[in-house]
C-alpha cells in the first residue's frame, strides 16, 4: 500500500504541469500552406507590457496577411525559465516553423545554441543587436530612449513638486535605455527637477514594485514612470494615492488607470515582423538587425484617453518627436 501511495506527489506534479500547459496555445501543422511563425515569450500575452506588444503585433500581421490560412502563429508564454524556453524553441524548429521568435533578451544563448541545428529556419531575438554572425539569426531592438525622452519632456512640464520617481525593474536592456532617455528629456526641459530612481531587481515582483512607487510618492514625487510587466504595481499605487501621474512604456497602459496615464510609448513590432517574413521569403534567413524608432513608426506615443493634456505640453511633445525623427534631438546624452 505504502509504495503505491508514494506516487501521489508525482501525480500532483503531473496535474500541476497539465494546468500550466493548458494555458499555452498550440498550432497544428500543415504542409506547404501558410507561413509559420512561433513566438516564445517570458511573461503573459496580457502583461500590459513587453510580451503583449509582440502578441498584438503578431495578431495584427496575421490579420493583415489574410488570417490563419496565410500566417500560422503559435506561441508559448510565461517562459521566465530560460531552459524551458530553449526547449520550446527547439520544438518549434523541429516542427518546421519558418520563423521562431525568442522574445526576450535573456534568450540569446539559447538562440545561439539552437539556431545552427536548423539552418532552414529563421530565428529572431530581442531586444538586442547581436546576430552572433549566424546567417539564420535576426536581432531586433527598440530605441526606447526616444519615447523615454518625449515622456521626460512632458513629465518635466507637468510636475508641480519638481520631483519625479522612476520605478525600474533591472538596470539592463530597454528598461535602462528608456529611463536614460527619460532622464535626459527631463533634464533638457528643466534641469532643476529631482529624479529619484529605484530598481527592484526583478521583472516580476509586483509587491515590491508597488512599495517602490509608494516610497517615491512619500518622497514627494507627483509623477512616476517605469518599465516591465511589474509596473502595474506602480500604477496601482499611483491610483490609490491620487494626484500622481504616470508615463508608460512598451504597451499602452491607459486602460489600467485612464485618468492618470498621461502617455505611453508603444512598441509596434508589426513592421519588424513583416520585414523578417519578407526577408525569409526572399531567401535571407537572418543576419540583420531591426530597430524600432519613432522615425519608422515602430515606436509611437499614445496619449492617455482619460487625461486632458495641456496644449503646450502636447506641442512640446510633438516638437520633441519631430526633433528626434529629424536627428536634431539626441535622446541619449
Amino acid at each position: 500500500m505504502r509504495k503505491h501511495l508514494r506516487t501521489a506527489p508525482v501525480l500532483l506534479t503531473l496535474l500541476a504541469l497539465l494546468a500550466g500547459a493548458c494555458g499555452g496555445a498550440t498550432a497544428t501543422t500543415s504542409p506547404s500552406g501558410p507561413f509559420r511563425v512561433a513566438v516564445v515569450m517570458p511573461s503573459a500575452t496580457t502583461d500590459m507590457a513587453y510580451s503583449q506588444s509582440m502578441f498584438q503585433a503578431m495578431k495584427a500581421v496575421q490579420a493583415e496577411m489574410g488570417g490563419e490560412s496565410a500566417l500560422e502563429f503559435a506561441w508559448s508564454e510565461g517562459m521566465f525559465n530560460v531552459p524551458d524556453a530553449a526547449a520550446a524553441m527547439r520544438d518549434y524548429a523541429t516542427q518546421g516553423y519558418d520563423l521562431v521568435i525568442a522574445h526576450g533578451s535573456q534568450y540569446g544563448a539559447s538562440v545561439q545554441e539552437v539556431a545552427p541545428d536548423f539552418p532552414d529556419t529563421s530565428f529572431a531575438w530581442g531586444t538586442n543587436v547581436d546576430t552572433f554572425g549566424m546567417p539564420n539569426v535576426f536581432a531586433y531592438t527598440a530605441a526606447a530612449e526616444e519615447g523615454g525622452y518625449v515622456n521626460g519632456v512632458m513629465a518635466a512640464m507637468l510636475t508641480q513638486s519638481k520631483i519625479i520617481g522612476i520605478t525600474g525593474p533591472v538596470e539592463v536592456g530597454d528598461a535602462k535605455t528608456y529611463i536614460d532617455g527619460f532622464r535626459n528629456g527631463v533634464a533638457a526641459t528643466d534641469p532643476s527637477i529631482t529624479i529619484n530612481a529605484t530598481w527592484t531587481g526583478s521583472f516580476s515582483d509586483v509587491a515590491l514594485m508597488t512599495e517602490a512607487a509608494n516610497t517615491h510618492i512619500a518622497a514627494g514625487a507627483d509623477i512616476l514612470t517605469g518599465s516591465s510587466q511589474s509596473v502595474v504595481g506602480s500604477i496601482g499605487a499611483a491610483k490609490d494615492k491620487g494626484g500622481v501621474l504616470w508615463f508608460g512604456t512598451q504597451a499602452d497602459q491607459a486602460t489600467l488607470a485612464p485618468e492618470l496615464v498621461v502617455a505611453s510609448q508603444v512598441y509596434d513590432w508589426v513592421g519588424v515582423v513583416k520585414d523578417m517574413i519578407a526577408k525569409h521569403q526572399a531567401g535571407t534567413l537572418g543576419g540583420e538587425v531591426f530597430t524600432l524608432r519613432l522615425s519608422n513608426d515602430g515606436l509611437k506615443i499614445a496619449y492617455g484617453t482619460g487625461y486632458s493634456l495641456p496644449a503646450d505640453v502636447r506641442s512640446a511633445a510633438e516638437a520633441a518627436i519631430a526633433g528626434i525623427k529629424d536627428g536634431s534631438i539626441k535622446p541619449l546624452p
Binding site: S43, D47, G78, V206, A207, S230, G233, G236
Partner: peptide
C-alpha cells in the same frame, strides 16, 4: 496591498 492580480503575483 497591490490591488490587482497578475500571473505569479507572489513571485
Amino acid at each position: 496591498l497591490t490591488n490587482l492580480f497578475q500571473e505569479n503575483l507572489t513571485s
